[in-house]
Design a protein around this nucleic acid. Sequence first.
DNA 1: TCTGGGGTCCTAGGACCC
DNA 2: TCTGGGGTCCTAGGACCC
Length: 422
Amino acid sequence: MWLLCDCDNFFASCERVFAPNLIGKPVVILSNNDGCIIARSKEAKQLGIKMGTPLYQVKDFLAKNDVAVFSSNYLLYGDLSSRVMSLLSRYSDKFYQYSIDEGFLDMSCYASNEEILQQARTCREVITRGVGVPVTLGIAPTKTLAKLASKFGKKYEGYGGVCMIDTEEKRLQALELCPIEDVWGIGRRSFDNLNYYGIHTAKDFAAKNPIWVRNMFKVTGYRTWLELNGKNAISVEELPERQSICVSRSFSGEGICKQEEVEAAVSNFASICAEKLRRQHSVCKLITVFAYTSRFRTDVPSKVINATLPFAVATCDTCEIIKAAMSVIRTQWSPGYAYYYKKAGVILSEISSDKVVEQDLFDKTDRRKQYRLNKVVDRINHKGGGQSVRVATQFLSKRFHLKREYISRQYTTNLAELLKVK
DNA sequence: TCTGGGGTCCTAGGACCC
DNA sequence: TCTGGGGTCCTAGGACCC
């Protein structure tokens, strides 16, 4: 049996941990630059607020309905997430974090379904008491069915946050009650297609001929079909080592147009990427750098900078990665016209372990010195918080021109921002 | 004025090899 | 009229997830 732990309205719940007066009230969380609504509490969903709505379109509505608004506070969410995951992982040796607010447990270590159910109930209590973020647990023979179980667990309060699909009868009943668009792995495009063929529930889909499914929806659709029919077909990696690392941002207002500013922002992205890479003990062989103007504006000319460069020797060195990023900006920069860049980013790919790195015969870099330098810089920055030590090109960057009007405090990660109790 | 950010996997088609 | 058979690698783009 698989257990899926899914935090309820995660970002909104995190904000409520430190603002309990908001429990039972509508809460929304905004994207970077306070652009769109990216998370909602149950009450906000009931008000009909849609995911991805630009803030400016609903500002009055939010005020009128007394909705609490927050800029996204990823430091807080990330920290509460790791607390939830650490408690969850105690309940099985085989634990796989799937996203910031979801994790799977392989429950085959328990003798019976009764025992699993009992453990799940305890687990939920421990997380609620220990972190304060409400979670729902779904248990079933496959991951797709466990996802489905957790949906039922959220929908019907009678389950007390723990829902198990353990018999054939329950499986069929669950499939029948589940609209096809609610199935994990069925997105917008497949949904339209399935509707055309008269498939409206998970049961309709599971009853289809597998060869037809394979032809229409390729292997991914076929795997979903297998899972709904109780056969495990989707694996989660034991060590979720990233295959690519991306840091990108939109710039608020008009965007930025000076070359130094774009370079400063891109340097910052490159530096964060390099840090992430070192944190997972990896090196990369490719870097992609991009910057582009607003895709919503038709009144000014648009421009795209985009290039991918290889490293001769796989690296995780901040200076080397920034240098490569700068060379892209400098070669593709067009000085003639003042373009306003609205978004830029850096992607590192072809990632592998830093344990074994193929060398280059003509490489003159002192890799050991580089390694030690990065290690020291990481340690200082960890201790000092943020970017105590930076590469000079990063200095012009004004926090990526990020707008965060409604940010809450870093209650759990910054001593200066601890919760004050009178 | 204002429109998020970070990922994965799969497929088709082109270019190339013998 | 007719024009092999078997591969690999790379890339762009689609579809999906949170």
